[in-house]
Amino acid sequence: MNPAFALEILPQLLTGAVLTLQLVALALLLGLVLALPVALARLSPFAPVSALASGYIFVFRATPLLVQIFLIYYGLGQFEAVRESFLWPILREPFWCAILALMLNSAAYTAEIIRGGIRSVPYGQIEAARALGMSGPLLYRRVVLPLAWRQALPAYGNEMIQMVQASSLASTITLMELTGVARAIAARTFQPVEAFVIAGAIYLLLNFVLTRAVHWAERRVTHAAH
């Protein structure tokens, strides 16, 4: 480990870390937005809707993320219809392909986490809310979802950390995020240890900050319950 060299490559790696953060934040946000309807569909008593959601969750959890990224980045572009559609300016950008793949992947895992949270809501709470005249969206917004969220938060914290690691696959479609920058430095300088050790340390730091943030959020939601 050469400290001078390590210091020299640090700025490049930090630039990569910024892209990693952008990928993770956007993919998590969009994934969460998509996960809620998927979880509700999965819980729907209407069999076709529930089967559709189950199928989506199954496919995205049973295949490697790399296949999903390549299917979207290389696979979609092969069709004339896609290339001529209004979506093409988005789908030809590696950044948006990565976001799309990460978001769809995250939504599949997150939907299962949310479903578990919703199913953990005690029936008595729902009965009480019904007795107060709540129903439908109001019942969900005021009672079911807040309680489900509290239950799901620790698992969602793990999903966030998984997403930090998953974002490294964006480097396979030319995006120079943290892992991509480290690989490029290793290939250029033949000094792999420094690049990968510093990149690894930055990932651990990101995880640490995320874990702290989730703990803080957990304490806040349990505090609000008393």
């Binding site: 950390i161 490294s168 696959l169 892992t179 480290a182 290793a186 690894g200 990932y203």
Partner: peptide, 14 residues
Amino acid sequence: GVPALLVIWLFFFG
């Protein structure tokens, strides 16, 4: 805590 891809690259180069 680090991506598997990073571990693979480390082994590949190092």
